[in-house]
Design a protein around this nucleic acid. Structure first.
Length: 505
RNA sequence: GCUGGCGUAGCUCAACGGGUAGAGCAGCUGAUUUGUAAUCAGCAGGUUGCGGGUUCGAGUCCCAUCGCCAGCUCCA
């Protein structure tokens, strides 16, 4: 159908939005109409030829969507459904969705007593003791790599005068999304939504020689952003969070090496956690950017080059960069298939100038440093959300909240069991002892459901021989070979120190 | 923030067209002393998110509000 004919056709039907849609179709592209009964649809197609080709379908969701994705446009009602050629396939699909929901971090977080999210503070998690083990474990891990990669940890204030964010440019763009407080004499303060301005301020405090560069400031402080209520999602999108954040100040010719080092460290972290990224993008210059176009272009090229050297396939997110610079985004998908950015590295073409940052070069002249933002886990909250879903709560031994549980078979083994637990605890192993008067099968079932990787069964034989019968969650089931306690402790400690993912043979 | 859906015990869910809120699991108590994924019995647990309204009577109907879920928008 020609454009004009289509315009008249839908105009007569009163389908004004479809008429408007015609203008979005570029010249030369075919304008196709599909018909079924009384229903005529503008669609690129293809459609099924006959509805009897659909064996089974189910409407799954309905939600609003802005016309052309613009918030200022009217909202349409969007209905989601899924169709299969047979009922069995539909049921299999629905069962798979249900299984995915079982891994949802919001459910697992409650089941494993990791965190709690409460209406008393929407979007701000309460960490329970076990969640805190994971949170701290991740920070400790990243922190342990900082000497190797040359980072220096700092801590900057939670609450600062908004002048700082006016300087950085964040205030103008994000004022409404910041928690603003009033200080003495009407002075305006803000709870910090990010660390970068503070790190720029730190850098500006004194003169720096080129010999000191790169300076890499790392910080794990909590950040607060007043995200719009409809965007909050479990731990994936929160108002209160922490990042394994760092900002690198270096000479312009050191940027490539810093990017390479970022990818090296990121790979080391991902390997230790047993994950890898498949979706890596460069987010390019957005509308309303600051800085010079040539700086943007050079920075974008540098990011593309670094991804290539790191050996990852890359995509482009057109116009999705930060206002201060282009960024690399490493995306992972949740159980619903939604992508979320975890690791990111960004070149800042704006803040060094805004803060008037300088270092003294070899030529004894002042120079403006290059600046890089980077996070590997990203937001710890979001990382935990995604990681819980990737592992279904089955954390690596070094990270899991409860590493081992002692299971005495009968009351007469309680004393030995408790002394055993104390020995494991003294060696730095997170251990519990199930001293309830339940049958062994029951205790094992509970320990399995709590995803405790190692069970230590003790009965007459073990007590007699001063041994334990290990039962590995991912190893052979059913005890067969009791082992000597000190040897087991030594191998566990060794595995924890090396952050081995699989501990059992 | 917007559109739609949903809020019942710690969790998962019941309760006909308005008629005294129930169960399983978890919890507590007792019995049981157990060898690799659920021992038995009893007890306790709710201002049905919060606030109004309609009605003789509201978990159920209406309004408002808070929160959650999905999508949209946004994401420093």
């Amino acid at each position: 159908m020609t454009r004009e004919a289509a315009r008249e056709f839908f105009g007569n039907l009163g389908e004004e939005l479809k008429v408007s849609r015609l203008d979005d179709i570029p010249d030369g592209e075919e304008i196709s109409i599909f018909s079924h009964g009384q229903f005529d649809d503008l669609c690129r197609g293809p459609h099924v030829q006959r509805t009897d080709q659909i064996g089974a379908f189910k409407l799954t969701e309905s939600a609003g969507a802005y016309w052309r994705g613009d918030e200022s446009n009217p909202m349409l009602q969007r209905i989601y459904g899924t169709a299969f050629s047979s009922k069995q396939e539909l049921e299999a699909h629905l069962a798979q969705l249900e299984e995915a929901r079982q891994r949802d971090h919001r459910r697992v977080g409650v089941d494993l007593e990791l965190f709690h999210i409460d209406p008393i503070s929407p979007g701000s998690p309460f960490y329970l003791p076990k969640g805190m083990v994971v949170y701290n474990g991740l920070i400790d891990f990243i922190r342990s790599l900082y000497p190797k990669y040359g980072y220096a940890e700092v801590m900057t204030p939670q609450i600062l005068r908004t002048d700082l964010f006016k300087t950085s440019g964040h205030y103008e763009l994000f004022k409404d999304d910041m928690f603003i407080l009033e200080g003495d004499d009407g002075e305006e303060l803000a709870v910090k939504p990010m660390n970068c301005p503070g790190h720029c301020h730190l850098f500006s405090l004194r003169k720096h020689s080129y010999r000191e560069l790169p300076i890499r400031y790392a910080e794990f402080s909590r950040l607060h952003r007043n995200e719009r209520s409809g965007t909050l999602t479990g731990l994936s999108r929160v108002r209160s969070m922490a990042q394994d954040d760092a900002h690198i100040f270096c000479q312009p010719d050191q940027v490539e090496a810093e990017l390479d080092s970022f990818f090296e460290m990121t790979r080391e972290v991902w390997e230790a956690l047993g994950i890898d990224c498949t979706e890596m993008s460069v987010a390019t210059r957005p509308d309303g950017f600051v800085g010079e176009v040539e700086d943007w272009d050079r920075a974008t090229e540098q990011l593309l080059g670094a991804i290539e050297r790191a050996g990852y396939p890359r995509q482009t997110k057109l116009g999705e960069g930060a206002f201060y610079g282009p960024k690399v985004e490493c995306d992972f998908r949740d159980v619903m298939g939604r992508p979320w950015t975890l690791a990111t590295v960004q070149i800042d073409v704006s803040m060094p100038a805004r803060f008037g940052l300088r270092y003294v070069g070899q030529d004894d002249q002042p120079h403006q440093p290059a600046m890089i933002h980077r996070a590997i886990l990203g937001s710890l909250e979001r990382f935990m959300a995604l990681y819980i879903e990737m592992t279904a709560g089955d954390f690596p031994f070094w990270l899991v909240p409860v590493q081992a549980i002692v299971l005495p078979i009968g009351e007469r083994h309680l004393d030995y069991a408790q002394r055993l637990a104390a020995r494991f605890g003294a060696a730095g192993i997170r251990v519990e002892c199930d001293d309830r008067s339940e049958k062994l099968g029951f205790k094992i079932r509970e320990a399995e459901l709590k995803k405790i990787p190692l069970m230590l069964v003790v009965g007459d034989q073990e007590q007699e021989n001063k041994t334990v019968m290990p039962r590995w969650r991912h190893g052979k089931k059913g005890g067969d070979e009791a082992i000597e306690v000190d040897a087991l402790i030594a191998s566990l400690v060794e595995g924890i120190r090396e952050r081995r993912i699989q501990m059992q043979r």
